[in-house]
Simulated assay, not measured.
Amino acid sequence: MSQPIRVVLVDDHRMFRSGVRSELAEEAADGIEIVGEAPDVETAVSVIKAEQPDVVLLDVHLPGGLGHGGVDVLRGCVAQESQRGEPIRFLALSVSDAAEDVIAVIRAGARGYVTKTINSTDLATAIRRVAEGDAVFSPRLAGFVLDAFGAAAGEIAEVDEELDRLSAREREVMRLIARGYQYKEVAKELFISIKTVETHVSSVLRKLQLSSRHELTTWAMGRKLI
Rank of each mutant, 00 (worst) to 15 (best):
I34V: 14
V35A: 08
G36M: 07
E37M: 12
E37C: 12
A38H: 12
P39T: 06
P39L: 06
D40S: 13
V41L: 02
E42Q: 14
V45I: 15
V45G: 08
S46K: 15
S46I: 01
V47W: 08
K49T: 09
A50Q: 15
E51R: 15
E51C: 13
E51A: 15
Q52W: 00
P53K: 10
D54I: 05
V55P: 09
L57R: 08
D59Y: 03
D59Q: 06
V60D: 00
V60E: 00
H61Q: 14
H61W: 05
L62K: 07
L62N: 05
P63N: 07
G64F: 07
G65H: 04
H68Y: 08
G69N: 05
G69I: 01
G70T: 02
G70S: 05
V71Y: 00
V71I: 12
D72E: 06
D72S: 03
D72H: 01
V73W: 01
L74D: 03
L74A: 04
R75D: 10
R75W: 03
G76H: 06
V78H: 09
V78L: 12
A79V: 11
S82Y: 08
G85H: 09
G85Y: 04
E86G: 10
P87I: 04
P87N: 08
I88N: 10
I88P: 12
A92S: 15
L93K: 05
V95M: 14
S96Q: 12
S96D: 14
S96Y: 04
A98R: 14
A98N: 13
A99V: 15
A99Q: 14
E100W: 01
E100L: 03
E100S: 13
E100G: 02
D101A: 15
V102I: 15
V102H: 01
I103G: 01
I103E: 09
I106Q: 01
R107T: 13
R107A: 00
G109D: 02
R111G: 01
G112V: 07
Y113S: 02
K116L: 01
T117E: 11
T117C: 03
I118E: 02
I118Y: 04
I118M: 11
N119G: 15
S120F: 10
S120T: 12
T121H: 14
D122V: 04
D122L: 13
L123G: 09
L123A: 07
T125Q: 13
T125L: 13
T125A: 14
A126I: 09
A126W: 08
A126N: 09
R129F: 01
R129K: 15
E132L: 13
G133H: 09
D134N: 12
F137I: 07
F137P: 09
F137T: 10
F137E: 05
S138Q: 07
P139T: 13
P139A: 13
